[in-house]
Design a protein around this nucleic acid. Structure first.
Lengths: 126, 126
DNA sequence: TTCTTGCTTCGACAGATATCGATACAGGCG
DNA sequence: CGCCTGTATCGATATCTGTCGAAGCAAGAA
């Protein structure tokens, strides 16, 4: 295997530096509790789709009115899921006049992504 | 913000090929349901620690007897969490004589990691 | 065989979660 | 001001989840 270290490019100087892959060393309990909250926010199909809708929306943000259409659930339920995503630190939001806009916080996703970096060829699967 | 594009270094040419980042295009419902199951398996602190314990264990695998010690929960509970991880496709297991061994399935982690690849500077965070 | 050890399954229960309709709040428009 | 629209919160409820102790199963030892 190459001797290149995987380097995650430092985005806006944030995140990604904090978390080496979990497959390299055991997580301590405190970190596990923290990370589990974020994964829990991702553990619902509606929230996953909301997140991807927001992220892939033009300008990187979307108002709630753009988000209620594609789903079969009621508007209060969408609002609930957005709150969960917000409280998990995965999205930010702001009211602008009549509408409320949501956008993804990339550092949070990057943190989780880095954590799950698999060793692939490294350790061998068995 | 900088105009640098975030480039994620291609690690060992593996994974990351199957799933483009969710921030690029909306997830369809079927994929969301499937992925949500995996994230749900990661949404518990005990399971996160179990996974990292298994992955970082010598040889890339660990028997259940190695996994019960570090936790405050009962052994049946550990067994339950291992089952959840297994049914989510995140780990494999095999009985070898007296002991049962678990190992991480790197492709599954890689898939999730790729999905969460953030565009960072690309779209702009707001 | 019987005993012991390692692990899984079972049954129960407390607490969390997803969902809804109803209601409240915030802001723009007459 | 009153009304309408967009969004959040409330209260209720059915389902899911994490946890336990007890019991079951598998494999080696005596």
């Amino acid at each position: 295997m190459s001797n290149l270290e995987l380097k995650v490019i430092d985005q806006d100087g944030a995140a990604a530096a904090c978390c080496s892959p979990m497959v390299r060393e055991p997580l301590d309990e405190e970190a596990a509790v923290d990370l589990a909250k974020m994964f829990k926010a991702l553990s619902d199909p509606v929230r996953l789709r909301l997140l991807s809708l927001i992220a892939s929306h033009e300008g990187g943000e979307a108002c709630v009115c753009d988000l209620t259409g594609p789903f079969d659930v009621s508007q209060p339920t969408i609002s609930h899921h957005l709150k969960v995503l917000r409280e998990a630190g995965l999205v930010g939001s702001e009211r602008r006049g009549t509408w409320v806009y949501y956008w993804v916080l990339p550092a949070a996703l990057a943190r989780l992504s880095a954590l799950l970096q698999a060793p692939a060829a490294a350790g061998g699967s068995r």
